[in-house]
């Protein structure tokens, strides 16, 4: 399998990362190297195997732990928004959202 520069553009778009033509070329080369290394996985017979979700699940059952439905938080907007690049009246501001 070999990726093309179209694949790189599709992935960059999917991952929302702008990419320059020079970067595209280098990334294409690197990703193809990585995937030729990854290819060895395909030879492994994994029929009837269940994927491993949590490592400890190999030795014991690991069900999801649940918390009680209780409100434990109070308003901490000021501290939580201290890193906002742009804000006004308690709202995070972004370039206009088109729907």
């Amino acid at each position: 399998m070999s990726l093309t520069s179209d694949d790189i553009h599709r992935l960059a778009k999917l991952a929302r990362i702008n990419i320059t033509p020079v970067e595209t070329e280098r990334t294409l080369r690197e990703l193809n190297n990585i995937f030729s290394m990854v290819e060895t996985l395909q030879a492994v017979d994994t029929a009837h195997l269940v994927p491993l979700c949590h490592p400890i699940a190999i030795i014991q059952e690991m069900p999801l732990r649940l918390r009680d439905d209780a409100v434990t938080e109070t308003n901490a907007r000021e501290a939580n928004m201290v890193n906002a690049p742009q804000q006004e009246n308690g709202l995070f501001l972004v370039p206009k959202v088109l729907e």
Partner: peptide
């Protein structure tokens, strides 16, 4: 529910913006 699905923030409708969004809800 009283609280959110993955955090302890309240779910009441109509609160001032971002006053019911804790660090988990904001994905800090």
């Amino acid at each position: 529910t009283a609280s959110k699905i993955f955090s302890g923030s309240a779910t009441t409708f109509g609160a001032a913006p971002n006053t019911q969004a804790n660090v988990v809800d904001l994905a800090l």
